[in-house]
């Protein structure tokens, strides 16, 4: 999509006007700003290269002697670049971003419900946590074990997520996004559990 340049009126479709080279209002989509296709599997080194290269063109340090408008565009574009880099380099936040862009609501919904296959384990974990709170230190080994178990589940989930990313990039199907959302919810639930156990064990120590 092209727009007329605010300064010289020529048409452009990038961060800078092709004609007069003035910086333009940045696109508000991270993928577009980084010049990347909307894919979930990303090469981290390529992302970093793009981040550095764009920083070298957009950073406010390069615009201190320009007009107020150019300064503002530079600050906005760099803020977006930095925000985008934080999101895109983290697989979970990247997936959440893509889900949100695709119109999937992301929220606490779904992360509170116990995944059915974990029902029994979570029940026992809660019992052990209660006992620890009551001063019974004999449950500590059980809790350490549970924590290690859930951490290994997290690693499995991350692999599953990477697989789902590839599926989505290959097919672009919404059903895959729905599956990714389910995986993220499960991941969040388990990572909350791990934190809870960690805090409880720290407090008991």
């Amino acid at each position: 999509m092209s727009h007329p340049c605010w300064q010289c009126g020529a048409f452009f479709n990038a961060l800078f006007c092709d004609s007069c080279r003035a910086i333009q209002r940045p696109p508000d989509n991270y993928y577009e700003l980084f010049g990347l296709p909307r894919q979930l599997a990303l090469d981290e080194q390529d992302l970093e290269r793009r981040f550095y290269a764009l920083s070298r063109r957009l950073h406010p340090d390069l615009f201190t002697r320009r007009s107020e408008r150019e300064k503002q565009f530079s600050t906005d574009a760099t803020a977006l670049l930095n925000d985008g880099y934080r999101v895109l380099r983290d697989p979970v936040r990247r997936a959440e971003y893509v889900l949100k862009q695709a119109g999937f609501p992301i929220g606490e919904q779904g992360t509170r419900d116990v995944p059915p296959d974990l029902l029994e384990e979570v029940f026992e974990l809660n019992l052990a946590l209660e006992e620890l709170k009551g001063g019974d230190h004999s449950v500590e080994p059980t809790l350490h074990q549970a924590r290690a178990h859930f951490e290994s589940l997290l690693r499995e989930i991350d692999q599953e997520l990477a697989g789902a990313f590839r599926d989505y990039d290959a097919t672009g199907e919404r059903e895959v996004l729905a599956r990714i959302r389910a995986i993220l919810n499960r991941r969040k639930y388990i990572s909350n559990l791990v934190n809870e156990v960690r805090v409880a064990l720290q407090r008991a120590a």
Partner: peptide
């Protein structure tokens, strides 16, 4: 520790 400029 967010890189600046940063926005939310």
């Amino acid at each position: 520790n967010s890189t600046i400029p940063a926005s939310a």
